[in-house]
């Protein structure tokens, strides 16, 4: 299971990679593996303002429909439109081509509420059988 060192994580299995004021967001390799084949991803429009830990996207896998929560607050500045017709990118490359959105970071301090790669790995070990 991949857990990139340069990302931060939520306990709900979203990842965020912060570079400058821009935060790229997706779901983790563990999440895609648990969900199985992802068949639909609904993303917000550019300029939509999301709140940390509030729902901003929906996805469907053969197994279940799930809400996806924003790891940070801010305005959406980019959306991965490729997921509309190729949601399987999330399964194939959760931390790369399967990214969801880019958020303009509203508050740098919010990253203190997130888990480091090491903490997320530990969290997975504790919570997943």
């Amino acid at each position: 299971m991949k857990i990139p060192e340069d990302c931060l994580f939520t306990k709900e299995h979203e990842w965020v990679k912060i570079k400058g004021g821009q935060a790229t967001v997706g779901i983790t390799d563990h999440a895609q593996s648990e969900l199985g084949d992802i068949t639909f991803v609904e993303l917000p429009q550019i300029d939509y303002v999301c709140q940390q830990f509030q729902q901003f996207a929906t996805l469907e896998s053969v197994k279940a429909a799930s809400d996806v929560y924003a790891p940070v607050s801010g305005k959406i500045s980019a959306v991965n439109n490729k997921l509309q017709n190729a949601p399987e990118l999330v399964n194939q490359d959760a931390f790369g081509k399967g990214w969801f959105v880019v958020i303009e970071l509203a508050d740098q301090k919010e990253s203190a509420n997130l888990l480091s790669a090491a903490d997320y790995e530990k969290y997975l070990k504790e919570t997943v059988e």
Binding site: E12, E34, K63, A64, S66, D67
Partner: peptide, 10 residues
Amino acid sequence: MNMAFHASMG
């Protein structure tokens, strides 16, 4: 994300 939402296989 909430992964147990609307599970249908279960």
